[in-house]
Design a binder for these strands. Structure first.
Lengths: 213, 213
DNA sequence: CAACATACCTACCGGTAGGTATGTATGTCA
DNA sequence: TGACATACATACCTACCGGTAGGTATGTTG
């Protein structure tokens, strides 16, 4: 028999460390996060923490692989599967998470993925490899979705899927960046709405003479 | 008589510290930058450096006020003065600095202003105040330029200046963020071109049936 | 129960971070 | 020429960082 005791459950402990580390890294950056604090918050000693992760870096990589990556897929990419109106889906998803992050107050810490990418990409090859792969996945998924939109006539055929995908992802970096740098919900909201306006210009039905915000 | 000697010129020394600090902070982030290294690179001892700046923070604020701020104005805002075609000017300026940063290799370190804003805004009020003011200035200048463009019929009157300005600035954060996180010139170029495409959709002459990239 | 593995703790390491107290060299001005 | 401020150097302090050595407690398995 196994897993009888709640404590001394290795898998759960490991997971808890990763979740705590995610929070600390999200709030303070990777370099700014302290393994002492992470251990303390987890209710573990530093020795125990290093029983699970060979180094602070290894813990960081695990946070990317086992927390941030899956979160990206679940939040942003899953909704696109089985969507026959990609513009509508992207628009809705964006609006939703802007709203959620403002409501929770998380927006002041920006986007976990972007934070790590900005901080660590030039400093650490392993981080860069992982984070870059995630962003490539994101852009590819958007491009593919837009391509489908063109096929089914919901998107203008004068739109370049790859180019539009690059801009949408960049704009999302910028929206969360705006929230973080301004620490102001209204400015973030404005940037989010502006992206939605742009998304509407991609629709097959778009007319430049239409309503303005 | 003053300023006879090249060394022991306080103003020049101070400036040199700021420039060195800018480089270190640009490459390593504020928290990652070491005052030991900055002092060493300046050819100064740590004691001497702290003769000019009361703390590492104070040095950081000086870098924003006396280096990054002026750089922003000179690079991005000055070209807009006396421009009667804001779209063309923003487009040209963006293309120019994407090209320059790729050529110099600086793009792998991202945008100095954005780096600091992302890293320090949630952690330090003084940084936040300064950096947020700079971004507000930036957005306001763009909004004003677009408003002028609408007046002189170079920009569609269905465009919301404030909204478009928010998106353009956010997209620029994202373009440099893309370069930094991908460490790849081509991906950054793609994002830059995509922003240019978007800018063209703001023109009064824009037709959705036009050429695609 | 014995043998062993895994989970976790205590105490400590070397290194470096930002910061400071104090001394000295240099230029200015009365 | 001598008093004084400023520019800089030397030496050192404290706090904390990531990381480890060595032990103990709690299983699991035969």
């Amino acid at each position: 028999m196994k897993l009888l005791s709640k404590s001394r459950d290795a898998e759960a402990t490991r997971r808890k460390v990763i979740e705590t580390a995610f929070g600390e890294i999200y709030r303070n950056g990777f370099q700014g996060a302290s393994v002492n604090t992470i251990a303390e918050e987890t209710g573990l000693t530093k020795g125990a923490l290093f029983h699970y992760f060979a180094s602070k870096q290894a813990l960081g990589y695990a946070v990317v692989d086992e927390y941030i990556g899956p979160l990206l897929l679940q939040r942003w990419l899953d909704p696109l599967r089985d969507s026959d109106d990609p513009i509508r889906t992207i628009r809705k998803t964006c609006k939703r998470y802007v709203k959620e992050d403002i409501a929770s107050g998380h927006f002041v810490f920006g986007c976990p993925l972007n934070n790590l990418a900005q901080e660590m990409s030039p400093l650490d090859k392993e981080f860069h490899k992982r984070l870059n792969t995630l962003y490539d996945t994101w852009r590819s998924a958007y491009a593919e979705a837009i391509r489908n939109g063109i096929k089914n006539r919901t998107v203008r055929d004068t739109v370049s899927p790859k180019s539009a995908a690059a801009l949408i992802v960049a704009a999302q970096m910028g929206i969360w960046g705006t929230g973080k740098s301004s620490q102001d919900a209204e400015r973030m909201q404005q940037a989010g709405d502006a992206l939605c306006d742009y998304l509407d210009t991609l629709r097959a039905s778009f007319k430049p003479t239409g309503a303005k915000r």
